[in-house]
Design a protein around this nucleic acid. Structure first.
Length: 505
RNA sequence: GGUCCUGUGACCGAGUGGCUAGGUAGAGCUCUGCAAAAGCUUCCACAGCGGUUCGAAUCCGCUCGGGACCUCCA
């Protein structure tokens, strides 16, 4: 069996995945900043790494998956009003900062549940780890790689780079940036005069009087810088060195680069072995993001309540949409594309459900009747599930293979072909493997909510009435039943054997 | 300006130098009381120009276009 290969941003190539401790994997993924509602772009990393999490478990690893909640309010360096993002919005909305944080955390959790993502093993908050962050900053100062200025603390990038380049941990190793190239590219930023060099970044920020979120520290009242929380929490829960660090590509620099530097000073190690980054979701070819003013919030997506949305799109449609593209490619949002996904998902899901309902009774199979070509084809397609996932988690290719199996399933269901064209073993493997990949690894699920037993009973009554009408060639009655149910979103289908099935549209 | 990515058919997209990606949409056929679904068949591609090669969507160069990061950002 082939082994998992993942693209490591650090080395710019696909590498065989080997965990530091056999059988165990530590994975840290940068979580949301809960100062606002999550949008479609945010869905991508969490769904991507949900797949990574599920797949690693399928491979037999015990995974500790840590995903933080950034609720401490990162300092906004850009712009005139140097105010904390969270405190700023809190004033606008007349809410307590923590009330706001709670609201958006709840919304985030709600959205993640809609997407059927598995909760991380640990979901630490930045505000819950102020002490750890302060300890880390103190260590960096003691070692001489940070300095205090006017109640704030900055990381000395130049000094770090000079010393740690020798250890193979230069600043810029992840993003491929060379420090010297950047000297004249940084714009004027707030409190620039406090820094020794423009590229230095804040570890601790002095809180201005209007800033509500503040904590006591050795340097006065303030709040942590933007990058230190991830270093502090990943170290605390995953150790000095862990296996996978994930996040969006836009976090590569400066966020992850700074994490590497901070952890290198404190732990004398490269924080993570594999750095995995998902690409962006775009809209009209442009990255979806606050700064571009082109976001579609998840709640809007699910309700269809947004000017550019032609309809609502269900969480599973969105999940499927994301899985149809390789995680390192950009994915362009559009109504056409989402509608295509919606239909594709329906086709896949219905075939999958039909397959699971089939019984592999012994007497349906006969070694004499096997169509070797078809059997081989199915066996190959099923083997490709693992092969493609092992090749840097190529969910798009796995889906393509699944869609090649769909006609086989439907043909058996509609009795175009006999199940006995496949060997019993192939049939059974097909059933279990489709279930495993569709549900357990890709995390797709039925979107029907609640208890449908009573409705199903009612439907059976109507179906029976329609059958009787059809038998009497009373097509007026049979058509009315079908038409009115259709208006309710229930499609009746006359099967070949005279039975009538239904599906929810 | 610096660093990097990218340009595939109506739309979204996969593609390791030679083999049908796949989904959706379109066309035809089969099944069917009609329909839906399904099955079968089918149309529409690799931005442009040059080069390497027996052979390039895939490698190299140039041109044009799009984008990301360099600043909070998934």
């Amino acid at each position: 069996m082939s082994t998992l290969k993942v693209y490591n941003t650090l080395t710019r190539q696909k590498e065989e995945f080997k965990s530091i401790t056999p059988g165990l994997v530590g994975m840290y993924v940068c979580g949301p900043t809960v100062s606002g509602e999550s949008h479609l772009g945010h869905a991508r990393p969490y769904i991507t790494f949900d797949i990574v999490y599920r797949y690693l478990q399928y491979l037999g690893y015990k995974v500790r998956y840590v995903r933080n909640i950034t609720d401490a309010g990162h300092f906004e360096e850009e712009g005139r009003e140097a105010e904390d993002k969270i405190s700023k919005k809190a004033v606008l909305e007349k809410l307590e900062p923590m009330e706001l944080v709670q609201k958006y955390t709840n919304l985030f959790h709600w959205a993640m549940k809609q997407f059927n993502t598995i909760e991380p093993s640990i979901e630490p908050t930045a505000t819950g780890h102020i002490v750890e962050q302060i300890v880390m900053i103190e260590k960096i100062i003691t070692d001489g790689y940070a300095y205090e200025a006017n109640g704030s603390v900055y990381f000395d990038v130049e000094k770090y780079n000079a010393d740690f380049s020798k250890k193979g941990l230069p600043y810029g190793m992840l993003s491929g940036r060379v420090l010297d190239d950047q000297l004249d590219t940084t714009r004027d930023l707030d409190n620039q005069e406090e820094k020794r060099n423009k590229q230095d970044f804040a570890l601790w920020k002095k809180a201005p009087p209007e800033h509500i979120m503040r904590w006591a520290s050795p340097w006065g009242e303030g709040f942590p810088g933007w990058h230190i929380e991830c270093s502090a929490m990943s170290t605390k829960y995953l150790g000095d060195q862990f296996d996978i660090h994930g996040g969006g590509m836009d976090l590569q620099f400066p966020h992850h680069e700074c994490e590497i530097a901070q952890s290198a000073v404190c732990n004398d190690k490269l924080a993570a072995t594999y750095w995995i980054h998902n690409n962006m979701i775009t809209i009209n070819g442009r990255k979806m993001g606050k700064s571009y003013n082109n976001v579609i919030k998840l709640s809007e997506l699910f309700s269809g309540d947004h000017p550019i949305l032609e309809q609502a799109y269900s969480p599973m449609t969105v999940r499927f949409f994301i899985l149809q593209t390789h995680y390192r490619s950009t994915l362009d949002f559009g109504n056409d594309a989402l509608q295509a996904s919606e239909k594709g998902l329906k086709r896949l899901w219905e075939a999958h459900e039909a397959l699971q309902k089939m019984k592999a009774a012994e007497d349906e199979f006969d070694p004499e009747k096997i169509d070797a070509e078809l059997d081989n084809k199915v066996v190959t397609l099923l083997a490709e599930f693992d092969e493609f996932m092992n090749d840097d988690l190529n969910t798009a290719k796995v889906l393509a293979s699944m869609f090649e199996i769909v006609p086989v399933i439907n043909s058996i269901k509609d009795k175009h072909i006999l199940p006995s064209l496949l060997s019993r073993e192939t049939f059974v493997v097909m059933q279990s493997k489709m279930k495993l990949f569709v549900e357990d690894i890709f995390g797709l699920k039925s979107e029907l909510q609640g208890d449908y037993t009573k409705l199903e009973g009612v439907l059976q009554v109507l179906i029976e009435l329609r059958k009787q009408a059809k038998a009497k060639k009373d097509y007026a009655t049979s058509d009315i039943i079908r038409k009115q149910l259709m208006e309710l979103g229930i499609a009746l289908k006359d099967e070949k054997d005279g039975n009538i099935s239904y599906s929810f549209v």
